[in-house]
């Protein structure tokens, strides 16, 4: 493949992002933040409109962990619920999968139609690999097509994020990946429970509630999970209660 030269500014931005990701330390709940950040970083660095993350849990089921936008979240959920789509195939095979036409005659007609309705023209799924193990997939949604070089960048970001799952925990060097994915899934459950509470409290759509939580997290300089936890536990001491 031909590799176009990166502008220095772009190269620096990419390198800093990789350093930021690999220097994140996952203890527990932070796992979900690293992966939702990954989705957002992809949108910032690459010509993609949205990104979503799926991880395989201990039982072998694929779980939607986070996404850069509600539409990507719903498209990932659609794949899991209907057992079809590029991201599922990628999670199962460990190989990158793409659909650059999203045509009705393609391998995933139901998914392709949903993606088109949401304004996307192409989708790419890249494996989240940790040593020999494929732990899930990164799903990218775009209005155009990505170059080979851009896909290499996306895979590098994905690899960096997955690497954080393998960081050795001083308490135990065993089953770390399994435990961290389990905690990420439980964190996501808490975020969804908080979404339901906020949707009910302010008569919002579920997606709007998510954006509200994310805005509060930004304002309070807390992670999305921390905000969700404060909402669900009705923590009176959290700054979240005054910001909502």
């Amino acid at each position: 493949m031909t590799i176009p030269a990166l502008e220095e500014a772009e190269a620096v931005r990419l390198a800093s992002t990789l350093i930021e990701i690999t220097s994140s330390v996952t203890h527990g709940a932070e796992t979900i933040d690293i992966f939702t950040d990954l989705a957002q970083r992809c949108v910032r660095l690459l010509p993609v409109e949205a990104a979503g993350i799926l991880l395989r849990d201990a039982s072998g089921r694929i779980q939607v962990i986070g996404a850069s936008s509600p539409s990507a979240h719903l498209l990932d959920l659609f794949q899991v619920q209907n057992d079809e789509g590029p991201c599922l195939e990628c999670s199962n095979t460990g190989e990158p999968v793409s659909d650059e036409d999203l045509s009705a005659d393609g391998p995933w007609p139901g998914f392709a139609e949903r993606a088109r309705v949401n304004g996307f023209a192409s989708t790419y799924a890249l494996p989240l690999r940790s040593r020999e193990l494929t732990v899930g997939a990164l799903n990218l949604f775009a209005t155009g097509r990505l170059s080979e070089g851009q896909l290499v960048i996306a895979q590098a970001l994905a690899d960096a994020a997955t690497l954080t799952l393998m960081q050795v925990d001083p308490a135990s060097d065993l089953h770390i990946v399994i435990r961290r994915i389990h905690v990420a899934v439980e964190s996501r459950n808490t975020i969804e429970q908080a979404q339901g509470m906020i949707a009910q409290r302010f008569s919002l759509e579920v997606e709007e509630a998510y954006i509200r939580l994310r805005d509060v997290a930004h304002e309070a300089q807390l992670s999305l999970y921390e905000v969700a936890r404060a909402v669900v536990t009705r923590d009176p001491h959290s700054p979240v209660s005054t910001l909502l």
Binding site: S59, R61, V64, L77, N189, E192, Q193, A194, Q195, G196, M197, I198, A199, Q200, R201, V206, V232
Partner: peptide
């Protein structure tokens, strides 16, 4: 059995009921 209560819809609905 597994996953019966673990879907996103259950978490969201539980949050709505808890609030209401």
């Amino acid at each position: 059995l597994p996953g019966r209560f673990e879907s996103s819809h259950l978490q969201i609905a539980a949050g709505m009921v808890a609030e209401a």
